[in-house]
Nucleic acid binder design. Structure first.
Lengths: 210, 210
DNA sequence: GATATTTTTAACTATTTGGTTAATATATGT
DNA sequence: ACATATATTAACCAAATAGTTAAAAATATC
């Protein structure tokens, strides 16, 4: 193994370990010793290869949020109608955790902390995602298909619902039988939940047929 | 001031300080020294009056989540139709941060951590809230007004959107002009956002007029 | 006022934390 | 093979942390 490969490999191991631990316990709760242990490197290697705790966190965030807008944009290209585009947009947002399993947790940590460790580059990534939705809605408005609405709000509804559904699974599991009336409710799979949310949002945005 | 008053006063001060700091930096990030300083008490008083860090956190959580279901239930009592009830439900959920300004942040910390410090009593409070919605939807279904849907999903959409809109304000503020196309979007007040989300959810759930 | 009880405090404690350092090991170039 | 550059490490460090303690102070009781 060459130096370059060794370097890239250990960087990858550190980032992967950091991603898992930061997602699990947040920035303040994460321990550099623990990240080093999980990455199977000496702790000093983290400082040598990447930098201090804050720098490591920013690297991980950048790793996660980059490329999302581009991915969705590519998939939307092949769609014709505004509704089709919106559906692709929503499908991808609502199942983003399949591609980025840790993303919901990171979004939560960041929002909880007021975006304290949220790098500008990730904010740009997010802004691109919302700009995508803006275009779709605008096109839909012009064709009389969608109501005119600030894209930020449906985006928040979709992302909020997605993140909350995914992140609340442990609590739901733990307190499954906590309330008699709720125990009888049919259990939905994550895919079902995503599909239902998609339909609700489409219905909410659509104008009645002329 | 009697002993009882002094005790109650110092407990209140500790809980208020703890609420603020836990909301701001989460459980792991909070420092008992800091909480004591903000509460203007000696740190040992926290352990004497309330208990250790975990116990303090649970007390604060219980303080916040208790009574929400009851409050909404009371307001719903005076409504007639399922739609009126649903509107009251949504209005209260979407403006809950006015009554409990720290609640969005606590929800985020708890979800981010997988509910690790979420006491059962607070889960029961939440379950009661969702059971309320279940009743409203059930009544609406029976009267042919609403679609039949698991109440958990619209609840997640409402709460998710509310929490995300409120909690993302610092980030939005900070990165206001990050993307040219988005800079021109009309800025909504929190009340506007809540009203729009309410309308979208009502529209999504309503069945067409017969 | 004397005594008992409770509250409060400053100092303390053992452990942990993020980060550093100098020595050692390995890789590269000649 | 040797010199130089780079990578890796065990040990170290100062500061911080949650929690504790025993004495002092305050309050309650008779």
């Amino acid at each position: 193994m060459s130096i370059k490969d060794k370097r890239d490999n250990s960087i990858r191991k550190i980032l992967d370990a950091a991603m898992e631990i930061f997602a699990s316990v947040g920035f303040a709760g994460a321990r550099m010793d623990e990240i080093a242990r999980l990455a199977s490197v000496n702790k000093a290697m983290i400082y040598y290869r990447i930098g201090n705790k804050k720098t490591l966190y920013a690297e991980v965030i950048h790793d996660i949020f980059g490329g999302i807008a581009e991915m969705i944009s590519e998939k939307i290209k092949s769609q014709q109608t505004p509704e089709e585009k919106l559906r692709i947009y929503l499908k991808n947002i609502l199942s983003i955790n399949k591609v980025h399993p840790y993303l919901p947790r990171f979004m939560l940590w960041e929002l909880a902390s007021g975006g304290e460790n949220f790098p500008e580059i990730a904010a740009q990534d997010l802004a691109q995602v919302i700009a995508l939705l803006m275009k779709i809605i605008k096109e839909g408005v012009e064709k009389g298909v969608f109501m005119n609405i600030n894209p930020f709000i449906p985006h928040m509804m979709a992302v909020g619902a997605m993140v909350f559904c995914r992140a609340s699974e442990p609590i739901r599991e733990k307190y499954q039988t906590i309330h008699q009336d709720l125990s009888d409710l049919e259990h939905h799979s994550p895919g079902d939940e995503a599909a239902i949310i998609e339909e609700l949002i489409i219905k909410a945005l659509k104008q009645p047929e002329p």
